[in-house]
C-alpha cells in the first residue's frame, strides 16, 4: 500500500475542477427547477379539488418511496424505450429535479400551514383581495417557515448529484472513480472529493443561514 500522497491530489486538481463544474451546473439547474416544480406542486397539493391534489399526493408518495438510484436508472435507461431519450446530463437534471421537488412540495406545504387561517380574516376585513393576501402575507410567512427544510433539500440535491456517475455523467465523483481505475489512489481521490463536496455544501449552507437569519430577524423578534 503506497503512502498517502498529497502531490497526487494536487496533480488531479484540474481534472477534479472540470468535474466540479459539471456537478455545480447540474445541481444548480436541478435546484432551480425543483423549487419551481415544488411551488407549483404545492399549489396543486393544497387545492380544494381532489382532481388536482390527489395526483400530486401520489407523485410525492411514489418518488419518496423509491430509491433515487433506481429513479436515475429509470430515466436514463428506461425512458428511451418509451420514446424519450435524454443525455446523461439532462437525465441527471430531470432525476434530481423529480427527487428534490417532492421534498420541496412537502416543506412548502408545512410552510403554508404555519400561516394560519385567522389572519386571512384580518386581511379580508381590511378589504384586501385574496391575491393580495396571498402575495403580501401568505407567501412571505410561508417562505420563512419552509426555508430551513428546503435548505436541507437543496444541500441534499448537490450531494445526490454524485449518483449521476452511475449513468456516465462526468461530474466530480465520476472523475475520481475514473482516476482510481487507472492509478488505484482511492484514499487520496475519495478524500479529495469529500473535501470539495464539503466546501460547496458549507458555502451553500452559510448563504442559506444568512438568508434565514435575515428573514427571521423580524419574525422571531427576540
Amino acid at each position: 500500500m503506497p503512502a498517502f500522497d498529497w502531490g497526487y491530489i494536487w496533480e488531479a486538481v484540474p481534472d477534479l475542477l472540470d468535474g466540479l463544474v459539471v456537478t455545480i451546473y447540474v445541481s444548480f439547474l436541478a435546484i432551480l427547477l425543483s423549487l419551481t416544480v415544488g411551488a407549483i406542486g404545492c399549489a396543486l397539493r393544497v387545492a380544494d379539488h381532489k382532481i388536482l391534489s390527489f395526483p400530486v399526493a401520489g407523485y410525492v408518495e411514489f418518488i419518496r418511496g423509491t430509491p433515487f438510484l433506481v429513479q436515475v436508472f429509470f430515466i436514463f435507461y428506461g425512458l428511451p424505450s418509451l420514446g424519450l431519450t435524454l443525455s446523461a446530463f439532462w437525465s441527471g437534471v430531470v432525476a434530481l429535479t423529480v427527487w428534490a421537488s417532492v421534498f420541496h412540495i412537502e416543506s412548502f406545504r408545512a410552510g403554508l400551514s404555519a400561516v394560519g387561517k385567522e389572519i386571512q380574516n384580518a386581511s379580508a376585513s381590511l378589504g384586501l383581495r385574496s391575491w393580495q393576501h396571498t402575495l403580501f402575507v401568505v407567501l412571505p410567512i410561508a417562505t420563512r417557515s419552509a426555508l430551513p427544510s428546503s435548505l436541507n433539500t437543496i444541500v441534499a440535491t448537490i450531494k445526490n448529484s454524485a449518483y449521476l456517475q452511475a449513468i456516465g455523467l462526468v461530474e466530480l465523483t465520476f472523475v475520481a472513480v475514473d482516476r482510481i481505475a487507472y492509478d488505484f489512489r482511492s484514499t487520496e481521490m475519495f478524500l479529495a472529493i469529500c473535501l470539495i463536496y464539503l466546501a460547496v455544501v458549507l458555502l451553500v449552507s452559510a448563504a442559506g443561514h444568512r438568508l434565514e437569519r435575515r428573514l427571521n430577524r423580524p419574525y422571531v423578534g427576540r
Partner: peptide, 13 residues
C-alpha cells in the same frame, strides 16, 4: 367597517 380580533391577527413579518 373595521374589525378587531381576539388574537390581534397582526402580520408577523
Amino acid at each position: 367597517v373595521g374589525m378587531v380580533f381576539q388574537n390581534f391577527n397582526l402580520y408577523p413579518h
